[in-house]
Amino acid sequence: MDEATRSLLDALVDDARESTADLARQTGLDEATVEERLTELEASGALRGYTAVVDWDAVDEERVSAIVEVNVELDRETDYDDVARRIAESPAVDSLRLMSGDYDFAVNVSGSSMGDVSGFVSEEVAPLPAVTKTVTHYVMETYKERGVSFTDRDDDDRLSVTP
């Protein structure tokens, strides 16, 4: 990947709402080229989406999140991808990853109540034939998500003008 494309991705990871003009300024590409690269990156599957990072505790909206550990037992007809596809189908699933270690899948789930989340686990995950065990950990507090800190503090203690 060339340096300009890398900068383009860095800029979008920082702020997916950057205007094309500001992306151009930060990368040294012209605006038409920025649009072109974005289209290419989207087409190739490198850029999968542009979403917001929301602190649901700060709005009047019940939101419960959990990390669910899932153990599976595979057979000739079923592989990890098959199980993952099934689990990923649910809109309650925010992210789904295959892990090394004591369990196989880590599933980030959210819903509007604990009942929603446990319902998802008991009705959509546990009954799958390959699933042997689930452990659900409810999120108690979020401090940082996707690089964005949820604790507001201005910790810039630099002097405002220095040589």
Binding site: D156, R158, L159, S160, V161, T162, P163
Partner: peptide
């Protein structure tokens, strides 16, 4: 430095150290 420190709306582009 003194003017900048005495206002709270200042954006400083005067800092000679990393942020």
């Amino acid at each position: 430095f003194e003017i900048a420190e005495n206002r709270d709306d200042v954006i400083s582009l005067g800092v000679g150290e990393p942020d």
